[in-house]
Design a protein around this nucleic acid. Sequence first.
DNA 1: TGGAATAGCTAAGCAACTTAACTATTTCCG
DNA 2: CGGAAATAGTTAAGTTGCTTAGCTATTCCA
Lengths: 171, 171
Amino acid sequence: MAQEKRREHQEPADETRGPNDELSRSLRDVLTLTSLVRVSLGRALQMPATDVEAMEHVMMAGRAGETLGPGELARRLGVTSAAATQTVNRLVGEGHLTRVRHTGDGRRQLLGVTGSGRRHVMGELLPLFALLAEASADLSPAERAGAQRYLDNVADAYRAFLARDSSTSAQ
Amino acid sequence: MAQEKRREHQEPADETRGPNDELSRSLRDVLTLTSLVRVSLGRALQMPATDVEAMEHVMMAGRAGETLGPGELARRLGVTSAAATQTVNRLVGEGHLTRVRHTGDGRRQLLGVTGSGRRHVMGELLPLFALLAEASADLSPAERAGAQRYLDNVADAYRAFLARDSSTSAQ
DNA sequence: TGGAATAGCTAAGCAACTTAACTATTTCCG
DNA sequence: CGGAAATAGTTAAGTTGCTTAGCTATTCCA
């Protein structure tokens, strides 16, 4: 636990070997494990990992009061809209999603999760969420606040990074 | 993961819609953004996202004093050893990795990063690491400790989840 | 009203992945 | 010791999810 003092300005001089930050290291572990979990979920649910991810996005959006279409789904998944269409085709074909025309804007399609789709995915996801809830419940409020702030900072960092060359590579 | 005093009893009853935990939500955002960053890095570096990931793993291991072979790389990437071999073939072909026989165990191959490989990948990665370092440096020591503990808990949760059905789905 | 923009879909091709089978080396015992 | 089993890695073939390019339909806007 080498708790340094504040470092408002970091010199990138010697850091040619990556972040020696202990926190970045823990984050990196979580990210590696996440991609393993992704693969594992896909196998367990017998669907491509992207489709599982798609289901999560549609459900999360629903929870937030939004309704996604294939285009927005593509953006969140980091794939082309053509790929998202194919994912939606699969999921609708399996009875996990519904796709209905937006009343008022005929170009749009609105995606919804079916009951069976939710049950199917949640069967695997709920145990994971329970474990994650424990990971959070184990913390003191102060720790939780720190974790929250770090993650929000990291999200901002990622967004800044993505904005970097969105002209050349994004979309 | 120790300390279960808070909330020993969480009822999974109503939680059929996912985690309403604010922290889980922030984590989820980071994970979504991470996969977007992955894609973006692959595009920027003109290589498959898996290959970028592979380079990171080899470099991280090196920093930790380990030397990976294709098999261990496959495990960390969540792909088959055949896929890892192909990734290594590509990376060696591009001059980013070296592959030499392990002296003492002729079955093993040891992977190393070349100077040009490191430069190529780090050219894109360093700016990202700098942003992540800021995300951490912005925190107070107490906040950092909280974040650290949360991430370690999450890593444990993921490992527990992966161990769940490693008999049926893993590898 | 007509052109540009937006949303989505289709079709074809590609490339990264998987499975299955194989070689080479090492380890374990009988 | 010597042969079976285990381990590490590779090869070859086939699958499939993704991309690119081009298209239709609808809405915006000027």
